[in-house]
Simulated scan of single mutants.
Amino acid sequence: MTYGTFMSTVRERGEYAADEAERIVEAVIETLGERLPDTSAEHLADQLPTRLADIVDRSEGPARTWGVEEFIHRVAEHAEEDEASAEEHTRVVLSVLADQITGGEMNKLISQLPSGYADLFGHGELT
């Protein structure tokens, strides 16, 4: 999937305007990059279009240990949205991301995150 295809899929699923989709994707992907350990972020980045890979990889310091609620709160801050909207945006972006990566990478990603994250990716059955 190219960056353009990723963005058009997000726009379609979330019914966003182009500029809104870019802001939301960046907020969610950046927050995910902050949450993941460096090696996990690198493996994820390897499967993403370069522009998204750069966003995942740009976080510095140790991985955060946020649960789902704190993750959503951070997305809301990055996107300058309320938390209900941020949760909806997160579900849209992460479901498109889940479609982008291999099943093995998806399983590794979910296994490194606390319960509840799988549902955000649209894979509640992996919880």
Rank of each mutant, 00 (worst) to 15 (best):
8 S>Y: 10
8 S>E: 06
8 S>V: 03
11 R>F: 00
11 R>L: 05
11 R>E: 07
12 E>I: 03
12 E>L: 09
14 G>N: 10
17 A>V: 06
17 A>H: 10
18 A>E: 04
19 D>N: 06
20 E>F: 10
22 E>M: 03
23 R>D: 05
23 R>Q: 07
24 I>R: 15
26 E>C: 05
26 E>V: 05
27 A>E: 01
28 V>K: 13
29 I>T: 12
29 I>P: 10
31 T>Y: 01
31 T>K: 04
32 L>S: 08
35 R>W: 04
41 A>M: 01
42 E>A: 14
42 E>R: 15
43 H>C: 02
43 H>T: 01
43 H>K: 12
44 L>A: 02
46 D>R: 13
47 Q>F: 00
48 L>C: 10
49 P>T: 00
49 P>Q: 06
51 R>M: 06
51 R>H: 01
54 D>S: 13
56 V>I: 14
57 D>W: 12
57 D>F: 05
59 S>Q: 13
61 G>E: 08
62 P>N: 09
63 A>K: 13
67 G>K: 14
68 V>G: 00
71 F>I: 01
72 I>P: 08
75 V>Q: 06
75 V>G: 02
76 A>F: 04
76 A>N: 07
76 A>C: 13
78 H>K: 13
78 H>E: 04
78 H>D: 11
82 D>I: 07
85 S>R: 15
85 S>T: 12
85 S>N: 14
88 E>D: 10
88 E>Y: 14
90 T>V: 10
90 T>H: 12
90 T>R: 07
91 R>H: 03
92 V>P: 07
94 L>F: 07
96 V>A: 11
96 V>T: 06
97 L>G: 05
101 I>Q: 02
101 I>S: 01
102 T>C: 08
103 G>N: 12
104 G>H: 10
104 G>N: 12
104 G>V: 06
105 E>Y: 13
105 E>P: 02
107 N>P: 02
108 K>W: 01
113 L>R: 15
116 G>F: 06
116 G>D: 02
117 Y>R: 02
117 Y>L: 06
118 A>T: 08
118 A>M: 08
118 A>W: 04
119 D>K: 15
119 D>H: 11
122 G>S: 06
123 H>Y: 04
127 T>S: 02
